[in-house]
């Protein structure tokens, strides 16, 4: 189902969920949970948004049943650790490539996905100051390096 324009702010989280459907269903589940919560704050009034969010909720409930015996889904603290470890793994990979001066699409995507997953971490509660800084840095780096490569410049 097409994403209504009013919910554009969650499109990348939903895309990350789709990319992890098979690779890491726990990541997919929490990306969709974040998108659901954020989407309801963005717009759950207009009919097309409500229809989209109902479908997303159906998907979440189905995933919940399928993954029910997984502790990362059943226990919030385990889920939190799962997402945080995954986000930081992506961040460290991209940061290492950056420090080695290896600039490419994969490392840009890893910086950006790390920032999205740090958004997702907020379903478990307030982000730590460290994670807020990581998210800001990762999003800035992804944008900066993407623009450098687009303009044919070498990132510092």
């Amino acid at each position: 189902m097409a994403l209504p324009a009013q919910l554009r702010a969650i499109q990348h989280h939903l895309r990350t969920a789709a990319e992890h459907e098979k690779r890491d269903p726990v990541v997919a589940y929490y990306c969709r949970l974040y998108a659901m919560q954020a989407g309801m704050k963005l717009d759950s009034k207009t009919p097309e948004c409500r229809k989209f969010l109902v479908k997303l909720m159906d998907q979440l409930e189905t995933m919940k049943k399928e993954l029910g015996d997984n502790d990362s889904i059943g226990q919030e603290v385990v889920g939190n650790a799962h997402i945080e470890n995954y986000a930081l793994k992506m961040f460290l990979y991209a940061d290492n490539e950056d420090r080695q001066g290896r600039f490419h699409k994969n490392m840009i995507k890893s910086f950006y996905s790390a920032s999205l997953l740090l958004d997702v971490l907020s379903v478990f509660g307030e982000l730590s100051e460290e994670n807020i800084q990581h998210r800001k840095y990762a999003r800035w780096k992804a944008t900066y390096i993407h623009n450098c490569l687009k303009n044919g410049e070498t990132p510092e």
């Binding site: 949970l33 309801m40 759950s44 909720m57 409930e61 059943g74 226990q75």
Partner: peptide
């Protein structure tokens, strides 16, 4: 139709909120 539409909308919104709360409670 305006008021009916609004009450349907808010009923559906409430239902979504309840489903989300239930999903989270089971975590």
């Amino acid at each position: 139709t305006g008021s009916v539409g609004t009450s349907v909308a808010s009923a559906e919104q409430d239902e979504l909120s309840q489903r989300l709360a239930k999903l989270r409670d089971q975590m």
